[in-house]
Design a binder for these strands. Structure first.
Length: 339
DNA sequence: AAGACGTGGGA
DNA sequence: TTCCCAAGTCT
């Protein structure tokens, strides 16, 4: 299927398309997961600017890496990048084969294949959800079977794939994003039309399973004292080793509400996966050292961070938004009541 | 093997 | 505003 290669090469190339540096290809593949092209266009260049090499990451801290990843979500990926950078600094890149790369944390079958074909020109088929859908349509089947992959490569042309797997892998993904989409197909422009059993016939729709949403209320306090804001390090779970504004239980939050200097900020909604969180931020401005002691019971577990340095710590997005509005825009939209 | 893991952006 | 989506991996 020379047609696939020709079609791919006729597209406007992505800025990083022809970079074969294993480090950059690795970052590119990890960052691409579960995100959109517009996010990539913004974040990939800035990442490379912050961390131009494996060594630059290995020389940083995990917190620095999480900060650079902030806003991209799925933060385990950033922790893995840090782990892998240190490993590679010591041992070098893995051998260019599937089993060696699969040993790296966060590198699964898709990512390993994509890196090996892009950076090392190894003929592995990188099967992501797009390619999976294309394969199912090509063969006109309604369930996926890994055995189809070898047949698919044969259909593409084994010799051609051995030589041009990088372009063909990338071409297939672009195809899945543009012509052979989940809910929309444009077969007449498809380079694979000749070999497709489902041509013109949309099928293999992923049935989206509706998840039941779980609502959660979170009560947080922003304790401000001189130049400092108290923040809390997340020890486990979502956002591990990142920071948040301190969460307290409702009872305590209510008692803080009555403190002098306390003002209620507008509530925030933050949804992800199956959760719908409502954040209730309470801003407490403490002017006297004596008053600070009234919060000893919680502040002793917290970190006093200079307001000017809050941007140096990695925060989960929902908290970052509140912090930015509080410090940046004068909190105009944030405050419920005028002071 | 179903569920967890996050977010910004577009309709 | 609200809903829904987007280059997976791990357990």
């Amino acid at each position: 299927m020379q047609e696939l290669i020709d079609w791919f090469q006729s597209l406007e190339p992505l800025p990083w398309q022809n970079d074969r540096d294993p480090y950059k290809v690795y970052i590119l593949e990890i960052m691409s997961q579960q995100t959109t092209l517009s996010v990539m266009m913004k974040r990939y260049p800035s990442w490379i600017s912050t961390f131009p090499s494996i060594d630059s990451i290995a020389a940083a801290s995990e917190e620095d890496v999480l900060l650079a990843w902030e806003g991209l979500g799925y933060y385990q990926r950033a922790r893995n990048i840090y782990t892998i950078a240190k490993f590679i600094k010591e041992h070098g890149f893995p051998e260019p084969n599937l089993s060696s790369w699969l040993q790296l944390p966060g590198v699964g079958r898709y990512t390993a294949a994509a890196i090996l074909s892009r950076a090392y020109n190894k003929p592995y088929l990188a099967v992501d959800v797009n390619v999976k859908r294309i394969i199912m349509r090509i063969f006109g089947v309604s369930s996926y079977d890994q055995g189809l992959e070898e047949k698919f490569i044969a259909l593409l042309g084994k010799n051609l794939f051995d030589k041009y797997s990088s372009d063909m892998n990338q071409g297939l993904i672009r195809l899945g994003q543009s012509l052979c989409k989940k809910k929309e197909i444009i077969c007449k422009e498809c380079p694979l039309m000749k070999i497709c059993k489902s041509a013109g016939n949309i099928s293999c729709l992923n049935v989206s399973t509706k998840k039941t949403i779980e609502r959660r209320d979170k009560y947080l306090v922003i304790i401000s004292f001189n130049e400092y804001i108290y923040i809390e390090k997340i020890e486990s779970g979502v956002g591990k080793n990142m920071y948040r504004l301190p969460l307290v239980d409702y009872e305590l939050w209510q008692t803080f509400l009555l403190e002098p200097g306390a003002s209620l900020l507008s509530k925030r909604k933050h949804s992800y996966t199956k959760y719908c969180d409502y954040l209730y931020p309470l801003y407490i401005e403490i002017k006297e050292m004596e008053l600070l002691q009234r919060f000893d019971n919680i502040t002793k577990h917290l970190i006093a961070c200079n307001k000017k340095k809050l941007h140096e710590r990695p925060f989960l997005s929902s908290y970052r938004i509140i912090i930015d509005e509080l410090l940046g825009g004068g909190g105009k939209d944030l405050f419920l009541e005028d002071q």
